[in-house]
Amino acid sequence: MDKRITIQNMNKFYGKKQALFDINLTIEQGMFGLLGRNGAGKTTLMKTIAALHKKKSGEVTVCGVPVEKAKKIRAMTGYLPQDFSMYPNMRTDEALDYLGALSGIPAQERKKRVDLLLEKVNLTEHRRKKVKELSGGMKRRLGIAQALIHNPEVIIVDEPTAGLDPEERIRFRNLLCEIAEDRIVILSTHIVGDIESTCEKIAVMDEGRILWKGTVRELIQNASGHIYTANIEKQYMAQIKKEYIVTGMVAQADYITVRLVSDAEPDLPNAVLTEPDLEGAYMYCLHANGCKVKGGEE
C-alpha cells in the first residue's frame, strides 16, 4: 500500500478568490509539519486533503486514493480541526463512543477502543466528566482520541497547541510523536517550537503558496550565513527594528543582545554571524521569498 500523500499542481478557489496556488507536495509516513502564518492557507490545504473542501484543479491522493473518493478518504483519515468542540452535556467516553459509532465501528470493538484511547491520551480518570467540564488541554487530547478512534492511516491536526499551557503543550507534542510511529501525521501550526520538537520534514506556506519544503535541518542550513547577533544600546533598538528582522532579544544591564536576519553582514558594532535556529531560519525563508516580515517591528 502506498503510504504517502501526494499533491500535484493543486489549486483551490473560494468563489473568485484563489486560496491555494499550484501546490506540489509529497508527505510520507511520520510527522510532517506545515508551518506558516495565520491565513497562509494551511487549514485550506488540510481540509482539502481531508475531503472537506473541493479543489479546483490538480491531483491529490491519500495513500493512493484520490480525494474525490470522499468516503474512502474519510475512512482512512482522522481530523482534528483548530476550532472544535463536542456536545457539552455528553460524557467524555460517550462523545468518543458516539464519534466511533459514526465511523461505523461495531459496539463491542468501540468499547475496547474507547478504553484504549482514553488511556493513551491520559483521560481515563476523566471519562465520566462532561465535555464542558474538561480543560482546554483535556479537550485537545480528547480531540486526538476521536481522530484516532477508527485507527486511520492519516491524522491531520490543525493548530493543536494554540492556547495550551507549556506543560500541556509538551504532553500533546509527545502524544503526536507516539501516534506518528506507524502513520502519517500532518501538524499545521504557526508555532515554530511545535515543529522543532516534533517534525523532521516540513513545508513553509505563505499566502496560499509553498515557499519551502524539506527537512528542518535543511531549512536551518538554508539560513546559514544570514543570522547575526549584536549587542545594541537600548536607545538604538527602534532603529534596528526598522532596518532588520529581529528574531530574538535578551535584555542585559546596559544593552540588548539581538538576533537578527540579514542578507549581508549588518553595519553594526559587535555583529557576529551565528548558528541559525529554526525560528530564525523560518523568518529568513519568508524574507528570502519576498514576504513582508515584521520581525520585531511594532
Partner: peptide, 16 residues
C-alpha cells in the same frame, strides 16, 4: 446543533 457546537467538522470527516 453540530454547527452550533462547533462539532460539524468532526462529524463530516466520519465514515458514515
Amino acid at each position: 446543533a453540530d454547527r452550533k457546537r462547533r462539532m460539524h467538522e468532526l462529524v463530516y470527516t466520519r465514515n458514515v
